[in-house]
Computed example of a mutant assay.
Amino acid sequence: MRARRCATGRLIIEDGQHATGRFIAVDPAFMMARQQEAPTNLGMLPADDDGKTRETPHGPGVLRMPDSGFVAQLAMPNSRTFDMAGDDGRMRTYVLDAANESFAVLSRDGDGWSVREGGRVSLWGEVEQSLALWHAAGSPAATRFGISVEPDRQRIWLENAEDGPSWRLPVIPGS
Rank of each mutant, 00 (worst) to 15 (best):
H18E: 06
D27S: 13
D15A: 05
A98D: 04
D88N: 15
G110T: 09
A25Y: 05
R153P: 07
A141I: 05
W157T: 06
D88R: 08
L169Q: 15
A141S: 12
V95E: 07
T53A: 12
M32P: 05
R144G: 00
F23L: 10
A98F: 07
L45N: 09
G146Y: 03
P151A: 11
E128M: 10
P28L: 12
G146A: 06
L106N: 05
S148N: 14
L158H: 09
V71L: 08
P39G: 06
T143W: 10
A136N: 04
A75G: 03
P57W: 07
W157K: 03
R22C: 06
S139T: 01
I172E: 12
F82H: 02
Q73Y: 02
P77A: 05
F23D: 06
E117T: 12
L74D: 01
G125K: 06
L123S: 04
E150P: 03
R64E: 09
S114Y: 04
G89H: 06
R90G: 07
R80Y: 11
H58A: 03
R90M: 15
R5W: 02
R108Q: 05
A141T: 14
K52L: 12
E159H: 13
D87R: 13
A137H: 04
G112C: 06
T143P: 02
A104W: 05
T143E: 15
C6Q: 15
G119D: 09
R10G: 00
M84C: 01
R168N: 09
L74F: 01
A98P: 11
R92I: 00
R64N: 09
G118A: 12
V115H: 04
A38D: 11
V95T: 10
A137Y: 06
Q17K: 11
S175F: 13
F103R: 00
I147W: 00
D48I: 13
